[in-house]
Structure formats: structure tokens, C-alpha cells
Design a protein around this nucleic acid. Sequence first.
DNA 1: GTGGTCTAGACCACC
DNA 2: GTGGTCTAGACCACG
Lengths: 128, 128, 128, 128
Amino acid sequence: MIIKIDFESEVPIYEQLRRQIIEGIALGNLKLGESLPSVRQLAEDIGINLHTVNKAYNELKSDGYLNIDRRKGAVVSETLPESTEDFDKKLEEGFTYLISEAYLRGKKIDDILQLCSGIFKKYIKIDK
Amino acid sequence: MIIKIDFESEVPIYEQLRRQIIEGIALGNLKLGESLPSVRQLAEDIGINLHTVNKAYNELKSDGYLNIDRRKGAVVSETLPESTEDFDKKLEEGFTYLISEAYLRGKKIDDILQLCSGIFKKYIKIDK
Amino acid sequence: MIIKIDFESEVPIYEQLRRQIIEGIALGNLKLGESLPSVRQLAEDIGINLHTVNKAYNELKSDGYLNIDRRKGAVVSETLPESTEDFDKKLEEGFTYLISEAYLRGKKIDDILQLCSGIFKKYIKIDK
Amino acid sequence: MIIKIDFESEVPIYEQLRRQIIEGIALGNLKLGESLPSVRQLAEDIGINLHTVNKAYNELKSDGYLNIDRRKGAVVSETLPESTEDFDKKLEEGFTYLISEAYLRGKKIDDILQLCSGIFKKYIKIDK
DNA sequence: GTGGTCTAGACCACC
DNA sequence: GTGGTCTAGACCACG
């Protein structure tokens, strides 16, 4: 599992980390039940502070993507969180924002659908 | 054009404003060439700081959505910005993030495509 | 609203703070919608680090007791969180632990019920 | 006597063990004077570290629930500890915390009393 | 002024 | 070894 942080980005480091771990699970690079590196290890590998890794791990934990096992450290949850009303709302808002701007910049509906399909298909082969 | 700000959102107020103006244009609630309320006016209507409105207008201006006219104030640009490489990248990143999480939470590809279509179709009738 | 921290306690400071704020709401010392002191202010008053206060506020926020308003700082939520399955489970576990030990130490059922009633009645007059 | 450890709980393993032994006594699954499994045996059965079991046993011993007998190993004390001022204080604090949060989440006084009664009655039939 | 982020370093509890 | 807690100090975005 390779993590790439853009230190120039507006997106906070812990959030970039959180997103890449989620995508890592979706892509199958991280299996359910698999252990993640310790906060210290990962922090050193990336070259950031361990508290920043900790924050990412904790957010993922409270969203249900990770569990903290007292013996094994952070592990990918065996049962991923389900869709909630809040998530659906967040999803719709996110898409609305992206699509409205894409529309103004001349994207056609097929451009959007194709882009989404392409992304989704990278995940669709993974068995949960 | 009605603006709704969520003061408890994680999204900054100026950014919420920016997004709603973009969506307003996409929906046709704001016509190309139409004047927006003055900074002062809008700030008062929404009950926010004048600088906040200013920041939103300025961002929209530098993205090419608005022009600042000395006499008419802020007006929606007659020629909207085109798609750029940067925008395409931002679009793909945004979709990747949303879709990977949606996938993990059990959304199917059809759910996503349908959601996107539904959003896009609200715009597609508008004549630019 | 007076906060008392026991620096000798096994309970972490941020957790003591969290509990006292919850009890403060229950007692009516903190009204719904009321603003809390800023993290810096409260940290200084109690004589602890601002990050510790921040952690307490953030936990209360993610549990739904507080909102972070971009203009007013932390405010008590207008609509308190409802009971969830998780909470019910936590509640039962907490009671089970306390009562089993109390039983072994000779407490009678009436002692327990009276203690609980006494505590609850301090809250029961508050109008939400 | 069956022990169930949740390795992902926030409650330390030794504390989970300690609580379950106390509840085991309260439920009558462990009789007064009965021997507990050896540290080594129990650690192996549960699949945890030997030191962890040891810590639980030692805490129970210093609270007066267990005696360490050179020949028979750990045995449940014949005379259970009485209520102390410290314990009463801990009990009240524990209830206060649980009840205040339950109150905010909409629990009624009868919900609480019924829950407590239900728990207590599981113990009340046991002859000490 | 507010909270959010990041770094740094320390100590502790747990296993 | 692991994560959890606390402190300290810095900088930034926001309003």
C-alpha cells in the first residue's frame, strides 16, 4: 500500500491519508481484517508527525472503516459501514457541486457518466 | 435567487456561497449577464460579514464566472470558463473520493449513475 | 458553569470535561443553543492545554451534543441526540458493571433504585 | 464460567476480565470459596497474555474478591468486601454519568429503574 | 477573535 | 512494541 501526500494541497494531510486508505480498501490493496502500519511507522514512512496519522486513523475508526485491536493495532474492519442518511446527503451534495460546475464548463452528461463508470469499475472486481 | 447558508457546516461560508451561485447559474436562476446583488446588500440579506461575500465574488471572478463591472457591480459572465486540465484533474479526484467511499458503503454502479443523471438533468434544459 | 477537574483521577481530563458538560446540560446550567467558552478561554480557566479542551469539544460534537458554529464557536446543540442501539448497549453494560459490584458489596435493590431516582430527579424539572 | 473478551473494546482486557469475574460471582456461576483456573490455564483458554490475567487477579485480590492460596491458586473469597466510602462515591459518580447522558437522550426515570431492577434481579436469587 | 492543522516531545497504560 | 493522553508552540483560514 503506497501513500502519496501532496504537501501543497489545500486538503489537510490527515484527510488525504484518510481518503487514500478508503480508496485502498475499495481497490483491494487493503484486505478486510488486514493490519495497517503502526502510527509511528507510517508517520516515519511518509515523513509526517505521528499525531497526524493518528488523527486519520481515528476518523476512520469512528466512521467504522478501522478497528483498533489492542493486540494488533489498527486493522481494517471486517464489516464495513453501511450507507446512512447522512452519507447519502453528503454524497448528493458532493455530486451536485462537482456536476454543476462541470456542466457550466461544457461537460456533457455522457462525459460524467463515463468518468464515473470508469472509476467505479476499478473497484467492482473486489470481493468483500 | 435564494441563498441558504449552514453556519454549522464544515464548508466555509464563502465556499457555500460560491457553490450556490455556480449552481444558480447552472439551474438558470441566474442568467448570463445578469447582475448580482451588491456585496453589501447580499451580506445584509444573509446576515454574514461583508468580507465573506467579497471573497466568494472574487473567487468566482478569478475562475471566470463573474465579471466585476464598475457601474453594474458583479454580473454573471457572458462566456463561461472552459474546461481546463486542472479542472479535469480536480473533477476526477473529487469523483474518485466520493465513489470509492460510496462503493464501500454498498452503492451499486447504477445507484451512482442514476444519482448523477438526476442531478445533471436539472441543468440540461437550460439554454445558455 | 463551573468545571472541576481532578488531576489525580484515572479518568482522562478531556473525558471529565465531556461528562461535566453533559451533566451541565442535563442540570440546565447550560441551555440548548447556549455558547460555550472558547477553547482557549476554558483551557486557561481550568489551567489545562487548549488541545485537551478541543478534544472534549470534538467528542461532544461528534456525539451530537455540541455544534461548532463558524461565528459563535461551540454552542450546545438545539436538538440533542436520540438514543441509539449502541448507546443502549453501552448503558446496559455500564449499569451491569456497577450493579453487580454493588450487589456483592451488600447493596440492596432499593438502595440502587433510590440512588438512581435521586440522581434523575435533579434533571427532571428541566424543560428541553 | 465462560469469559468473552472484546479485543476491540476501549475497556482494557484485564478490566473486562475483572468485571466478568465479579459478575460471575454475582450470578452464582462462581461460588464463594471456589477455585479459579490458574493464570496460565486461563490465559491460554482466552488466548491472551499471561500477565494480563495476572493483573486482573491481583486487582481482584486487592479489592478483596479473591484470595491467592499457595496450593489452590486463586479462590473466590469466602467473605466479600463491604461497601466503603470510596466505593459509594465511585458508585454515585458512575450512576450520575450514565443517568445524565441517558436523560439527555430521552430516557425516562422508569426506563432507568426498570433496567436496573432487571439487572439486579438476576443476582438476587443467589445465596451467598 | 475563533477553531483547525501540524509539529515536537514527553509520559503512561496495555499487552 | 502498541496506542492514548497531555503539553507546548506555531501557523493558518475564517469571519
